[in-house]
Design a protein around this nucleic acid. Structure first.
Lengths: 155, 155
DNA sequence: TAAATTGGTTTGATGTTCAAACTAAATTAC
DNA sequence: GTAATTTAGTTTGAACATCAAACCAATTTA
């Protein structure tokens, strides 16, 4: 009640901090378990994040994807190689520039992408469950605050 | 405006999903960089999470901490060993039960714990920056929603 | 007191990552 | 227009985190 703006009670801090931390761990764990029990049991969470980065339609280059995921090019090469072996990803040789290889998902890869996306949609839906437009706005605002804060640190 | 309860627009989904994902990556990255530039440059993000789990005061057993972090006992043993070598953690032999070792932070470890906690406090503060008590309640509600949803999945 | 359980460590293997050396293609400079 | 430089991606060798399984020692149960 007597909460001051920009000043947060110890209890609120504890709650929000723990929630933010726990939620993330929890999501990762569920992603892992869900994958294990699905048709895609040969895929790890790290691998699905690579599949997500490759996306459905834009044929990004290896370097682009590596930068996005903040992996070295060497690491990306090996990761792509195993996903190619498992049948989720295809390399395409760029016609213009023969040095670059572009990455794309196979049908199996696209299927997995969509399943993963659906799971995330559920998460977001549950996040704002029962809220009206105004309340959703508050959540969005909080996320923008946080993104701004984080960007400021790194500038 | 014409937002229906429990139904989320494609744009809102995109925004929230990306924000949730990006925010987490970003926090990890900043934690890593901050550590690199600090007095604690010999500590990784994973190590700080172990230090956080050991906490300031309760002398948890190795098994307790392992379960909390969902690591095997073997993994915990090796992780604790390096943190002990680096001077952040101490083992204590339990007087009652001579099989158990309890974990505690050295002064250096406590210092790091507090620095890390302060960083998290900043994050939470920025998250609810400029919001009144009511708006904070909305955020808390969203986090509870999410936690419930995730718990339901695993039951 | 013998057998089973529990807490923790050690060991050997696997997976992820990196930095650095490398190859091939494209661009720039002379 | 060739030589030097840069760029895109791969390969290689090492480091680290993790796990499962075997193990040891202390405690509990039968």
């Amino acid at each position: 009640m007597a909460e001051e703006k920009n000043n947060i009670s110890k209890a609120d801090f504890r709650f929000m901090n723990d929630a933010l931390v726990d939620v993330y761990d929890h999501i990762m764990r569920i992603e892992e378990e869900t994958l294990r029990k699905s048709t895609f049991r040969d895929i790890s969470v790290k691998e699905i994040h690579l599949i997500h980065a490759i996306t459905l339609h834009d044929h990004k280059t290896s370097t682009e994807v590596a930068n996005e995921l903040r992996l070295t090019k060497g690491t990306l090469t090996t990761n792509v190689k195993t996903l190619e072996r498992k049948g989720y990803v295809k390399r395409i040789n760029d016609e213009q520039d023969h040095r670059v290889t572009r990455l794309t998902l196979t049908n199996k890869g696209k299927l997995l992408y969509r399943a993963h996306d659906a799971f995330h949609r559920q998460i977001v839906k549950s996040f704002i469950k029962g809220m009206d437009g105004n309340e959703v706005k508050v959540i969005k605002c909080a996320l923008i605050n946080l993104e701004d804060f984080l960007s400021d640190i790194t500038q």
